[in-house]
Structure formats: C-alpha cells, structure tokens
Design a protein around this nucleic acid. Structure first.
Length: 418
DNA sequence: TCTGGGGTCCTAGGACCC
DNA sequence: TCTGGGGTCCTAGGACCC
C-alpha cells in the first residue's frame, strides 16, 4: 500500500536589505555609498532604526542609541525616519510578492513569508523562482532584497539572514540540521541576550550543541520555550506563530502609543496633556479599525528608567478618547510618585470585543453623538495634522504640550519646538 | 554608550467560582 | 477550624522582534 507522505512545504523568506536606508536613498541619491544612520539627529534621545552597510563597518547597528552611533561614526549622515515613505514602498513590495504566490504574509514592514509549495509548474524550481523574484523586485521597486528558501518558516528566515546582502540561499530539504549546526544559537529567531546567556551557562553555544540535548531536558530547563527550542534546533517551526499557515491573517491584539520627553518632566499639566494626546491617538486607531477595547493600561517610566505598568479593565468595551483618558488619568494619579520626573508615558489598550451591549438606549445615543464628533475630529486631523484638533481644551487650564512629534511609528522624527 | 515606538507571547500570583 | 483541586479572569513584568 502506498502511503501518501505529506508534501514538504517550500517557504520563501524575503527580507529587504537595509530597507529604511535604501528608501531614503531613493529620495536623496547623494546618500548612496555613504555612512547613513536613519532614526534621528546625532544628539537626540533615541535609537538607530537602520544603518547603511558603510555605517555598520564602524559598529553602528539598529537599536543603538543615536549618541553612541555618533561617537562610533562621526562622519555619518543622520536622517529622520519617514514612516509614510516606508509604508508606500512596503505596499509595492507586497504587490511584487503577490505576483508570485497567493500565500503572502508580511511579517513586518520590510520582510515577508511566501508559501511557494506547488508552484513548480508555474515558476520552475525554487532557485529559479527566487532569482526571478529577486530581479522583478529590483526592477519594480529599485530595492535589493535577500531570499531564504527552506521547508519551514524557521529555515527560510535563518537562511535569508545568511544570504544577506542581496543574495539567495536555498537549504535543500534534508540538509536542515547540517546547515544549522555550526550557527550561533543567537541566530535562532527568539533567542535574545537572556536566552543566549542561559544557554551559554549550560555550555551550549552552537545550534549543533543544542540539538545534542534531548527535548525533556530542555523542557525541564526552560519549560514550554525549551520544547520549542529543541524543535528549532532541528529546523522545525516549533510552537506558536511559527506553526501557523503562511498568509492566515491574524487580528490585532493591542494598540498603543507612547512618548519619551526630550527632557524629563514632573509638570502635572504637561504630563496629563500628554496622556490626553496619547488617548486621542489610541482612540482614533480604535475607531479606524472598528475595534472596542476593554482593558486600558498606563505605562510610566521615571528618570532612572524604572518602568511600571498599571491596567484597569472596564465592565464594557470602548473606543472613546474621553473614556480612555479618564481611566488612564486615574491610573496615573494613583500611581505617580508625586513630583518625580517622568521620562516616558504610554497608553495601551487590549481585550478587544464586539461593541458593548449592556448600556441602556439613552447612554447609547449619548455615545453615538460623541462618536460622530470624534469622527469629525479624525477627518480634520487627516487634513491638517495631529496638532490641529485637541480635546485637551477641556482640561484644567487648557494646557497644550510644548513639544509634539510625528504621528506614526518612527523615532526621532520632527520633535520640533513650537 | 545611556537606552524609541509599536507590537507578540509567556509566566506567575491572586481572586473567584464550582 | 482546616483544607481539596481545576478553570478562568485579571494584573504586572519581562523577553523578544523589527
């Protein structure tokens, strides 16, 4: 009897090379070939979002404080990030990828997984398909990418990293363990500084060392995570997200905005004004995506970097700025060590649910009027920017923060003094 | 060196219910 | 007055990723 064996998957991981830097180069070609640091100006409080390969030669890498980067590479050009440009380019990238497989999953703004299983007849063998994809990507977006190919997300991801820059690498099915064995454990996605140190403590430095231990030992050492690690050492998509089908879209679990001050502050009105603004930004995102949140969380970081979070769950979900602000302000007033300087504030919402249903009709009508007013405010902001409309005038003193920053995502951008 | 912002997932303890 | 487990929800913190 013939046993039909499950067909081995063919997964591509496509990772754009120095994405933010490359996009900036499209807008300013004089940056090409230079040491470039994206993320903010050299003296700003913030970290590197991306560094050109020239800058990396001097030890600059992402997540490094900008001031450190400036010391390591004084001749580098520092540029602010432009999230809109990256999003736009990311959409073009997505279109190219979609022409190769219907199963595309953007894992972040600059990388994606493709399930290429069963596309042989259309695209040829994996390497040929990858080279065609690579060429088309360059032609359509003028951007370089690297492509890793393997039988799992994990193998594809690790091999794209090894293919960089501007390369293609295929791990032939059956060769997974051989490919992984000489790599540092840090090359496994999910192994960071802490896990690396813990593994070093056990004398485990290479993936091959890890593969030498049996599952039960690793489970006993690291729990659930240890079991996943054991699988990863063999090239398997063990545990959680890695196990999911490519292209199955997942719903958002949380929305948050936070702000780090240029200068730490203990000014109550400034702090609460920031909470108002962050609440507005969160509420707006909720309304845009049609979500309602039940859990509201405050994040508070002091001068000495000590950070606390305090959460409160409402009886019913909301998407209203005012309700979010009310909760977050209460949490702040209850937990702020009065007079101590604050470095960062954040507003985070989660526990998404369908619309609240237990309010009486009167209450519902009241909320609807609020919704309409807030939607109008959102439209105004679309046209004139985040600072044009504020509910902060309802605050005691009508105080408006002196600094404001870019609406979305990236560090260091445009922290302009008014 | 002096540490962003937006996310996901996991752990662990306590409350509360059966 | 001493003492069960199991399940679920909530909260706080931390590791990790881009």
């Amino acid at each position: 009897m013939v046993q039909t064996k499950a067909v081995a998957r063919t997964i591509f991981h496509v990772d754009m090379d120095a994405f933010f830097v490359s996009v900036e180069e499209l807008f300013d070609p004089t940056l090409k070939g230079k040491a470039v640091v994206v993320g903010g100006q050299r003296h700003e409080r913030g970290v590197v979002s991306a560094a050109s390969y020239e800058a990396r030669k001097f030890g600059v890498h992402s997540a490094m404080p900008l001031r450190t980067a400036a010391k390591l590479c004084p001749h580098a050009t520092f540029v602010d990030g432009h999230p809109d440009r990256y999003r736009e380019c990311s959409e073009k990238v997505y279109l190219v990828l979609s022409s190769f497989s219907p199963l595309v999953e953007m894992a972040s703004i600059d990388e994606a997984y493709l399930d290429m299983t069963g596309t042989q007849r259309l695209h040829g063998p994996p390497l040929r398909a990858a080279h065609n994809l690579h060429a088309k990507m360059k032609a359509e977006t003028q951007l370089n990418c690297s492509i890793g190919i393997g039988i799992s997300r994990l193998i594809a991801k690790v091999s794209s990293a090894k293919a960089k820059p501007n390369g293609v690498l295929w791990i032939v099915p059956g060769q997974e363990a051989k490919f992984l064995a000489p790599l540092d454990i840090r090359d496994i996605p999910g192994v960071g500084k802490v896990t690396e140190q813990n593994l070093h403590g056990l004398g485990i430095r290479k993936v091959g060392d890890l593969a030498g231990f049996d599952d039960s030992f690793l489970e006993q050492q690291f729990g659930k995570w240890g079991l996943a690690l054991a699988g990863k050492a063999r090239g398997e998509d063990a545990g959680g997200w890695f196990d999911s089908e490519v292209g199955a879209d997942v719903d958002a679990k949380s929305i948050s905005h936070e702000h780090t001050y240029d200068q730490d502050t203990a000014d109550l009105e400034q702090l609460e004004s920031t909470l108002m603004r962050l609440s507005e930004m969160v509420g707006r995102r909720l309304r845009e995506s049609g979500l309602h949140a039940r859990t509201i969380q405050l994040k508070l970081r002091y001068e000495d970097f000590k950070t606390i979070t305090r959460a409160h769950s409402l009886p019913g979900p909301t998407q209203l700025d005012t309700e979010i602000f009310e909760q977050v302000r209460a949490l702040f007033r209850k937990n702020w060590r009065n007079g101590e300087k604050v470095r960062l504030l954040g507003v985070h919402v989660s526990s998404f649910e369908g619309k609240s249903d237990q309010q009486d009709l009167l209450e519902d009508a009241r909320r609807q009027r609020w919704q309409q007013a807030l939607s109008a405010a959102d439209r105004l902001r679309d046209r004139f920017g985040e600072s044009s409309v504020s509910l902060a005038s309802g605050l005691k003193g009508g105080f408006r923060e002196r600094t404001h920053e870019n609406p979305a995502g990236l560090p260091g951008k445009g922290k302009t003094r008014e």
